[in-house]
């Protein structure tokens, strides 16, 4: 599924995105432990987290993730968004808690 469709279907807030028609979403990964994501997330997955600092962008870039979704209305700092622009990492947000957004993303991808 294309990232554009995920953003639209889940009504996600967009802090930064480039080329959402071109980015593929193959799955999701839910974790607030950065080493867990580093070790176990796969390319083209969407990372759902409440961590919103600089290293989240670094890991998303190294792991070639499709996007990061910040939960519970968390907004990234300006410097984090700028870093995401440099790295080409989509930063998205939702007011929903982790369980709800993960469930919706799962349903959407299984459809």
């Amino acid at each position: 599924m294309k990232l554009k469709e995920v953003i639209g279907s889940l009504d996600l807030e967009v802090f930064y995105v480039s080329n959402p028609e071109g980015k593929t979403v193959s799955g999701g990964y839910v974790s607030d432990l950065l080493s867990d994501v580093m070790g176990n997330a796969e390319k083209n997955e969407v990372w759902i987290t409440m961590q919103s600092h600089m290293n989240v962008v670094a890991i998303a870039s190294l792991k070639e993730l499709s996007a990061v979704i910040f939960v519970g209305g968390i907004e990234p700092a300006e410097a984090v968004v700028r870093k995401a622009e440099e790295e080409g990492i989509a930063l998205l947000g939702t007011k929903l808690p982790t369980f709800s957004i993960a469930g919706r993303l799962y349903q959407l991808l299984e459809r």
């Binding site: 607030d32 432990l33 950065l34 080493s35 867990d36 070790g39 987290t49 961590q51 290293n55």
Partner: peptide, 9 residues
Amino acid sequence: EMGFGAGMG
């Protein structure tokens, strides 16, 4: 608190 230090490194 940053999500590091989980003893996985």
